[in-house]
Amino acid sequence: MQPGSSSCASTISTPAPCAPIGRRLVNGTGSIFQRARMVCHCLLIETNDGLALVDTGIGLDDIANPPRLGPKWVRQTTPRLDPAETAVQQVKALGYSPSDVRHLLLTHLDRDHAGGIPDFPDAKVHVDRREHDMAVSHRTPAPKGRYITDQWKHGPQWAFYGEGGEDWFGFKGVRALGDREPDILMIPLPGHTLGHCGIAVRTKDKWLLHAGDAYFFHGQIEARPKMPLVLGLFQRRADMDRAMRIENQERLRTLKATQGDTVTIFSSHDPVDYERCRCGLVHP
């Protein structure tokens, strides 16, 4: 695709799972007696049509009523439920109003990515149509308990993607905001869920790719892939299509190897990826 206007992006971390004892088995470093660390990595973008937020993390309604996230999920992940860490409160801390966020670009609709949708009631919600079919309209059966439908019971305005698109480094990317913002793309990366997407954003002369849950650990897209044992088991259990997830991880690995100077790839929950971005790989 031809470059157009550049976007300005800020990286934030919303309330994240505080993994249990066993850091080496989750993060790949430290002691098995230390607590592991994970993040929920969101991206706030200044566009030609207001602010856009890539993923929303856990929202204020989730924190006010943790059981709606699912008692088993809360018990297993022990999320740090601090309202100050929600995306909406961090947007306010940056000097914006929630109404300034005009677009929510969702990698998928799992509870720790979509919980903040109600905190931005004026925003249009952009998702892959296959994700909406499974999570919202139920045209496709979803695994029991996978989605928290209360997170969109207020009836947001949806925008759907999934067909057509143009070439982006060998991927098919669909312009998320059309001609108003040609350099924000929805990139289909199914596997973790059937409608899972990455979000590509051009900043100046380079690109960011928020890969969502296409991978969980930074070592998975290295030339010699590696994955901590417990995190690998969790990822496999969460897969809707494991073969497709593995195929897309290989495509991301190739993208990093061939375009690593041009494209910065990061995932939703890896703290190493998050720190790299927070320390200057994105343009504040």
Rank of each mutant, 00 (worst) to 15 (best):
T14Y: 07
P15N: 01
P15R: 04
A16H: 13
P17N: 04
C18P: 04
P20N: 11
I21K: 02
R23D: 11
R24S: 10
R24T: 14
R24G: 00
L25Y: 12
L25S: 13
L25W: 15
V26S: 05
V26L: 14
N27K: 07
N27L: 01
G28H: 05
G28F: 05
T29D: 07
G30R: 00
S31D: 15
I32N: 15
F33R: 15
F33Q: 02
F33A: 12
F33P: 11
F33W: 15
Q34I: 08
R35K: 14
R37G: 12
R37H: 05
M38S: 12
C40T: 08
C40D: 03
C40W: 04
C40A: 05
H41W: 06
C42P: 01
L43A: 13
L43N: 09
L43M: 07
E46G: 06
E46D: 14
E46W: 11
T47Y: 06
T47A: 10
N48E: 04
D49T: 08
D49K: 13
G50T: 04
G50S: 15
G50P: 14
L51R: 09
L51T: 12
L51A: 12
A52D: 11
L53C: 02
L53I: 04
V54F: 05
D55R: 00
D55N: 15
D55F: 14
G57R: 11
I58P: 06
I58G: 00
G59W: 00
L60D: 03
D61W: 15
I63M: 13
I63Y: 03
A64F: 08
A64L: 00
N65V: 09
N65P: 09
P66Y: 00
P66I: 08
P67A: 06
P67L: 12
R68D: 01
